[in-house]
Design a binder for these strands. Structure first.
Length: 292
DNA sequence: CTCCGCCCTAGTG
DNA sequence: CACTAGGGCGGA
């Protein structure tokens, strides 16, 4: 394995890989993490002052560097956030090194269409099942049971009843329709959305079956590299309402309220508000007592 | 424009 | 058994 001298304070690998953005990773008993980035197999071994890594095919540091968004100066983000909101220092202290991953739009779309009214363990099971059904096996010397991430073209070949049989529930129809819809547009994947302005890409995403504001924003942030985009889920909603928009307490999450909450949070946290959102989400998710 | 019931399933109290 | 888990959709 090769060495990368990026300390845990700038990249907390276990935290980032389990923070609910990506669902295909699993941890070995020796503390190593195995997953697929597209069709590349990846092995990570985190330590305090850096991490060891390997890929299959070998030597793909470019894949790792991009996936982990190592070009982003996270210390700079911390300074910006604490200057904007001093109380954010607590969240940074708790989740230091948490990063937003740069995934493919295809993968993110499949994952978050499956996320509705669902829990993380089950979403992870679904994504692994999808990869197994659609992807190609990655034969790495250090991985016994690894598959490439699902792409929409492959998902499009799966019939709805096959997906239902595999336990996807009502999301089976969305996935099956997504595949045929993308094929009908004559495009191989969603990557072309990366060349559009975000508001236009978002409109196109929301025209797809099973894709509303929340899922579209997940694709924007996790899959298209739009760092300012904030998926407003129940956790982020509660945080922004209580801290910044108490006037919106008790109002149901309509399009207008959704937009108001997102712009309030973005107005304070700035161009990397999507990254900040990930910290708020983690804090709410790992809190064990009841809410206010 | 807002509200509400429904969609599937597995895990929890 | 009742309830919930990181939504979206269609009808009222």
């Amino acid at each position: 394995m090769e060495w990368a001298g990026i300390p845990a304070a700038e990249l907390n690998i276990p935290l980032t890989l389990t923070s609910g953005q990506s669902f295909g990773w699993h941890e070995l008993e020796n503390g190593r993490w195995i997953g697929a980035v597209g069709e590349t197999g990846v092995l990570l071994e985190p330590e305090e002052d850096g991490f060891r890594w390997a890929t299959w095919p070998e030597g793909r540091w470019d894949v790792i560097q991009r996936y982990l968004a190592l070009d982003v100066d996270i210390e700079g983000l911390y300074r910006t956030w604490t200057a904007a909101d001093a109380s954010f220092a607590l969240l940074i202290e708790r989740f230091r090194g948490l990063r937003v991953l740069r995934q493919s739009a295809d993968t993110v779309l499949c994952a978050f269409v499956c996320s509705s009214c669902n829990n993380v363990p089950r979403i992870a099971r679904m994504i692994r099942a999808l990869a197994r059904m659609t992807g190609r096996r990655i034969i790495a010397p250090w991985a016994a049971d690894l598959f490439a991430e699902p792409s929409l073209t492959h998902v499009g070949r799966l019939a709805e009843d096959v997906l239902r049989e595999a336990g996807f529930g009502y999301r089976a129809r969305y996935l099956a329709q997504l595949g045929t819809r993308i094929a009908a547009q004559g495009t191989d994947s969603l990557s072309e959305l990366a060349f559009l302005r975000w508001d236009e890409a978002r409109t196109r995403l929301m025209a797809l079956p099973g894709v509303g504001p929340k899922v579209a924003d997940c694709v924007g942030l996790f899959g298209l590299g739009h760092d300012h985009v904030i998926p407003v889920d129940r956790h982020v909603r509660r945080y922004v309402v209580s801290r910044h928009r108490p006037d919106l307490a008790g109002k149901s999450l309509t399009t207008n309220v959704y937009t108001a909450l997102a712009s309030a949070f973005r107005g304070i946290m700035g161009p990397y508000a999507g990254w900040a959102q990930q910290y708020v989400f983690m804090a709410a998710r790992t809190r064990r007592d009841s809410d206010s």
